[in-house]
């Protein structure tokens, strides 16, 4: 699924790094605990979260992710977007809640399993 399709399915807005929105991603994960993302996530390119702080972007960078989706209309600050821009990570904002957003992407073909 392309990053632009994620934004479209979630009726969301791409807030930064729109230039990579044509890139394909193959799996995603959802969590508000960055500790769990660091411990349990493997090769997922998209992180859906309701947590908004700079560590979300840094955690995504550590995990080599390409896209962060902020759910529940959470708006990242300019500082957070600047960090994402530097890291080359696309940021999407959606009004959907975590459960719905994950379900919609899963139903659209973006699963939690990379390369399987």
């Amino acid at each position: 699924m392309k990053i632009s399709e994620i934004a479209s399915i979630l009726n969301g807005t791409i807030l930064c790094c729109e230039e990579i929105s044509g890139e394909e991603v193959f799996s995603a994960c959802g969590s508000d605990m960055m500790s769990d993302v660091l411990a349990y996530v493997k090769n997922q390119a998209v992180l859906l979260t309701g947590l908004v702080n700079p560590q979300v972007i840094r955690t995504a960078e550590m995990m080599d992710m390409k896209c962060v989706v902020f759910v529940r209309n959470k708006a990242p600050s300019d500082e957070i977007l600047a960090i994402a821009r530097q890291s080359g990570i696309a940021v999407i904002k959606t009004a959907y809640r975590m459960y719905e957003a994950c379900g919609m992407l899963y139903a659209g073909g973006l699963t939690g399993k990379a390369g399987e």
Binding site: D32, M33, M34, D36, A39, T49, L51, N53, Q55, T59
Partner: peptide
């Protein structure tokens, strides 16, 4: 030990303190 943490609640609210740091 996985899951053991002495981090306060305000740290958990920031997305950390799940007791996975050192094991990880």
């Amino acid at each position: 030990k996985e899951g053991y943490s002495t981090a306060p609640d305000n740290i958990r609210a920031l997305g950390f303190g799940a007791g996975m740091g050192l094991p990880n």
